[in-house]
Write a protein that binds this DNA or RNA. Structure first.
Lengths: 225, 225
DNA sequence: TTTACAATAATAGCTTTACTATCATAAATA
DNA sequence: TATTTATGATAGTAAAGCTATTATTGTAAA
């Protein structure tokens, strides 16, 4: 059986739905590729247009600007992670096991699972690590938040916070701990590869070490005292 | 007695030492101000030049580009924090009390203490929260790291990791926990004000709550089991 | 006191980024 | 067949991100 996953996106993120056309899919797919190759700062719609053999104006018909494209990509990613979290923790009752699943889903490199037709999830994960914070670290956070551009991120955070609360209903900081898990899964991996002395895994460079660190951190915090 | 604090900066960060001239000081001082007002993305040397009544070329004589200026500012900040950490924890033997000092130094808004002649530290803190990650989330991390541009950050991290190790020599992740404390002190405050549902302090918006969360997190993790 | 040197101001100019607008054409649909 | 829709081709503008040149200060050494 082949299953294909369709993720519903916030319509305000684009001018024309990129999933509906070939060019649109190319923009997202190769946009991810190009951002990964040259970094978000150097990335321009002109370069992307050349990369996929269209014109700058052609790209602008789909997205207002490159920041919107980054938000689009990031939303897609968090939606996809949330789907995987729900799928993988379904039918598990033990909230401890659920949390471990969540941590490893967040911190371990994904292999492209081909469930989604046009996105390479492994490269996507690397972009998220290096670029996702830039979606909200702007003077537009509040406005963008009102447009619900960060809903997928906040929803994922809420899902994790709920698992934490099931584990220990008396724990006082479920949301902050959830956002800490998500952010640190990204940052510790980034540090491990790029500024290794900020971590304890500079030598081995294994994502499983980040998982161990986060598990230790989280379960010490939420265990019933 | 009046004490003035002079922080030695990495010479590769600037073309001409901004601390040596009036214009240089103005560039840093009002650079901080302007980045705070309009955000780093909208910030340009042209706007800064107009802001302080000089020319664009004048600013370029001090810094290669705005990213270098941001790194300069960020380095200055982490040097200053490390100084305060060493000063405030000096003569304290109990590593637990030291750690609490550190956490509150990191997470609480500072008042401009006038020890440093030309920087408003409270605004600086806000810039660090919103912009500091952008110094290393680039394709240049490795090169910039080789130039020691992140040394002040890494040194601070090492200082904190050492206190953690004194508290519990068997704790396995002192560096990762240290970088987590530093990063989360920033991010939880940012979230609290801008994306409150990612925290448990959206209602009260008190930095002391972030301190409580971090203390709980850290001491659960490092307590001897 | 002159000289010379350092820092800045004034001006110009160049490439790239970040967009917007217009018109022609090809493909899909009514 | 008519007509909408997506794309392509082309042009153009304002601002960002620089560099270069020359003139003018103010300061410090000869």
């Amino acid at each position: 059986m082949e299953v294909q996953l369709q993720i519903k996106m916030n319509e305000k993120l684009y001018l024309r739905d990129p999933e509906q056309t070939e060019l649109g899919k190319k923009i997202v797919q190769h946009g991810i590729q190009l951002i990964h190759e040259i970094g978000f700062e150097s990335f321009t719609f002109r370069k992307l247009a050349e990369y996929i053999g269209t014109t700058e104006a052609g790209v602008y018909r789909y997205f207002d600007n490159k920041h919107r494209l980054l938000i689009y990509i990031t939303c897609w990613y968090w939606n996809w992670v949330q789907y995987r979290v729900l799928f993988e923790t379904n039918n598990i009752n033990d909230p401890g096991i659920k949390l471990k699943k969540v941590i490893s889903l967040l911190a371990k490199t994904v292999e492209d699972d081909n469930k989604t037709l046009y996105v390479d999830e492994s490269i996507l994960h690397q972009i998220i690590i290096a670029e996702a914070s830039k979606t909200y670290l702007t003077k537009n956070v509040t406005e963008d938040n009102k447009e619900l551009f960060f809903k997928p991120f906040k929803d994922l955070c809420a899902v994790i916070a709920n698992i934490i609360l099931v584990y220990n209903p008396k724990y006082k900081y479920p949301r902050s701990l959830a956002s800490t898990i998500i952010e640190m899964a990204q940052f510790q991996i980034f540090f491990m590869y790029n500024l290794p002395s900020l971590t304890d895994f500079g030598k081995t460079k294994k994502e499983s070490n980040v998982v161990s660190f986060l598990e230790d951190l989280v379960f010490s915090a939420i265990r019933k005292k």
